[in-house]
Structure formats: structure tokens, C-alpha cells
């Protein structure tokens, strides 16, 4: 049915009033996608306990957002929650899992390790400095580990992006409202004018190209000895 959706703009645009129809279809489709994000539980380290296990537990309930159905198989998951540091050995497998996910797919990097390598940013022989060297990340949730409430805030930010930034007119292109989410206590005035322009310039992401650009994992071949059964 995704094929049907791709053809709809071509069918409806020429009709007068077709844009309104496409906008309303957009609204419904984005509402549905944002309200039923099924996470792929990619928990590698301590963040997994907060992001995946504590948020699924009764005190903070991920089911309220409709995201309790955590599928272990990437084919059925929408959202890859990277909870934990990515070791170089894991980077290849993470890339594999990302490639196996079905469109539309979102990635949320939670915790310092997934954003930038975290505690291991300075000296480490084995940690990848940030998951966005490997997969294109949509939302970053800082913290070490972030509270479940911080994760929910990140989820709501992602929902905002899905509702505002995607349209069936341009499948595979996502507009990230970069300046719509700022760390708490920071206003738009703090971002000087030229920086604001700079940030808005590369706002629109072509997901397919972005995913193909992360070749870091491919360079990891050299770390895996030949003929090993690590893969």
C-alpha cells in the first residue's frame, strides 16, 4: 500500500482542491505514524535500562504513547532507539539492522554514548564516537542516562517532526525543524542570526542519501579479521 501512497500526489494534484486532499491525507498518515512508533530495542549499555526497561515499566509507561509494542525484529519496528554506546564490533551489526528496517524508519540516539561517544569520547580504542557516524539520527536525547521523562520528551519531539516534517508529496525527504527543539532554557535569541540561517540551511534531509553516506561501518571491515566468524 505504500505504492498507492506514492502515486496519490500525482493523481490528486491536478484536480482543483487536490492540495487540500493531499494535506489532509498527510495529516492523517503522519498522525498515525507518529502515534504508533514501535521501537526496535537496540539497547547496548546502561541507557537500555532507563530507555527501554524503565520506560516500559508501570511507573513511566511507554504504552501511553502507543509505543509499548517493542518488536525485536527490525522488519516490524519503526523506531530504532539506540540506547548505549556503540562498539566498533557492533557498528556493522547495527548498520545491518538499520538497513533491514522498513520505511518509514526513525532513529533516536539516547544518552551521551550514542550521541558522541560520551564518557569514551576522549580516549577509546573501541567505541564509535556517536551513532550518527553509522546511521542518520533524527533525535538526540542528551543525558547520562536520560530520565524516562527526558526520553518521553524526545519521543514527543520526534512525533512533532513526523507530523510537521513529512509529506507524501516527497517520500523519503524529511524536513527536520532543527530550531523547533532547543535545549531547555535556551531561546532563539541566543542563536545569532547567521547561525540560525546556517542551521536552517541544511534542514531538509534526503533519508536515502543520508543513510547511504554513512560509510563508517563499511570501513570497519579492517577491524574484523578475515575468515573470522564474528559476522
Amino acid at each position: 500500500m505504500g505504492i498507492v501512497l506514492d502515486r496519490l500526489p500525482g493523481i490528486f494534484e491536478p484536480i482543483p482542491g487536490g492540495s487540500v486532499l493531499i494535506t489532509s491525507i498527510d495529516a492523517i498518515v503522519n498522525w498515525a505514524r507518529s502515534n504508533s512508533l514501535w521501537p526496535l530495542a537496540f539497547g547496548t549499555k546502561c541507557c537500555a535500562i532507563e530507555m527501554l526497561m524503565a520506560t516500559g515499566a508501570p511507573h513511566q509507561d511507554l504504552a501511553r504513547f502507543g509505543a509499548e509494542v517493542a518488536r525485536q525484529t527490525p522488519r516490524q519496528a519503526d523506531l530504532m532507539v539506540i540506547a548505549g554506546a556503540i562498539v566498533k564490533k557492533m557498528a556493522l551489526r547495527m548498520r545491518l539492522l538499520y538497513d533491514q528496517m522498513a520505511e518509514p524508519r526513525y532513529v533516536m540516539a539516547t544518552g551521551s554514548c550514542a550521541i558522541s561517544g560520551g564518557p569514551f569520547m576522549y580516549y577509546s580504542y573501541s567505541i564509535v564516537r556517536g551513532a550518527d557516524e553509522i546511521v542518520p539520527v533524527d533525535v538526540y536525547v542528551p543525558g547520562c542516562p536520560p530520565r524516562p521523562e527526558a526520553f518521553f520528551y524526545g519521543l514527543m519531539t520526534l512525533q512533532k517532526m513526523i507530523r510537521q516534517g513529512e509529506t507524501i508529496r516527497k517520500p523519503g525527504i524529511r524536513r527536520k525543524p532543527v530550531l523547533a527543539a532547543l535545549p531547555q532554557g535556551i531561546t532563539m535569541d541566543d542563536l545569532r542570526v547567521e547561525q540560525r540561517e546556517w542551521l536552517q540551511r541544511d534542514n531538509t534531509v534526503d533519508m536515502a542519501k543520508a543513510a547511504a553516506q554513512k560509510t563508517w561501518a563499511a570501513r570497519l571491515e579492517q577491524w574484523v579479521p578475515k575468515n573470522s566468524n564474528n559476522l
Binding site: 498515525a32 502515534n35 501511553r64 518509514p104
Partner: peptide
């Protein structure tokens, strides 16, 4: 959460078929 099933259904219908 009454509309949860509807959101799930629409999302599943519009996923890529692999």
C-alpha cells in the same frame, strides 16, 4: 487511547513491504 488501534492499522498498512 481509543484511537490507538486505528493509528496502528494505518501505520502498518503504509509500511514498506519487504
Amino acid at each position: 487511547g481509543i484511537l490507538q488501534s486505528i493509528a496502528d492499522t494505518i501505520k502498518l498498512l503504509l509500511k514498506e513491504d519487504i
